[in-house]
């Protein structure tokens, strides 16, 4: 589903953010991406979401070569991704419902369809009763779940999350991770970048570890964290 082939990313500042990274993620996989800050996690996600372009190497997502993606095609490519941000990126000038509906109105869904899908997504994250609230009144965990509802409302093939539990306590973090696992269980390919090694270890999923832009570990950790 996601293939990185010898991907290099050098920023204009001359910094090598990724060095010859190759990886292959199967359809329906759930993968964690770890590493110190500055190791290249964000860069990898930016390449995956077509925010940045690789300097060298190729990236294939669902058979589509991102190198050949024209700028005008990027929006349509992104509609197939669900993206969850660390700071959830909700808009506080509108209700929870409208926040979640954003990807659908962008894609041009009919009103009726929007209502149905938004409620389904909010139901899945357990926030159906708060659809009319402004997200600013919600707790951190609830805000993140609204962010996840927004990411999955378009039924994306791939769900990408950048530090989704960054600001949450362990209990909430575990709930959020379980949500991702649930989406994975219905066939969504999930990639989660996270610092939370303990939580990752408990999930018993495939882990990719980056260090200084290089992929130094790829496997399912037994007990020890992949790096210390």
């Amino acid at each position: 589903m996601i293939t990185f082939d010898n991907v290099n990313k050098r920023y204009e500042s001359g910094q090598d953010a990724l060095v010859r990274v190759s990886l292959d993620i199967e359809r329906g996989d759930m993968v964690f991406l770890t590493g110190h800050s500055g190791a290249g996690k964000s860069t990898l996600l930016k390449l995956l979401t077509a925010i940045e372009r690789p300097t060298r190497g190729s990236i294939l997502v669902a058979g589509q070569n991102l190198n050949r993606l024209r700028n005008g095609q990027v929006p349509y490519y992104r509609r197939n991704l669900g993206i969850v941000f660390q700071n959830h990126q909700l808009l506080f000038d509108r209700s929870v419902f409208e926040n979640v509906a954003l990807p659908l109105s962008v894609a041009g869904c009919s009103k009726r369809e929007v209502g149905r899908r938004v409620r389904a997504a909010l139901d899945k994250v357990g926030l159906l009763h708060k659809e009319k609230h402004n997200p600013i009144v919600l707790s951190g965990g609830e805000q993140q779940r609204v962010g996840i509802a927004r990411a999955v409302v378009n039924k994306p093939a791939i769900l990408v999350a950048d530090e989704p539990t960054g600001n949450l306590d362990p209990q909430l973090s575990a709930e959020i991770m379980q949500l991702f696992a649930d989406f994975n269980a219905v066939g969504v390919t999930v990639m989660v970048a996270s610092h939370d090694l303990e939580l990752i270890a408990r999930m018993k999923r495939r882990v990719l570890t980056l260090q200084a832009g290089q992929l130094i570990y790829d496997g399912i950790p037994s007990r020890e964290p992949a790096y210390s």
């Binding site: 894609a107 389904a120 378009n154 039924k155």
Partner: peptide
């Protein structure tokens, strides 16, 4: 065609195993 795959997107229940999901999850079809 902005969709990645052509599998019909039906409303799927969470109980279904991934294997039955066809060639893959699919974005909104409009």
């Amino acid at each position: 065609n902005q969709r990645i795959h052509n599998s019909p997107r039906a409303t799927r229940t969470a109980q279904r195993p991934p294997a039955e999901r066809g060639p893959g999850a699919v974005a909104a079809r409009t």
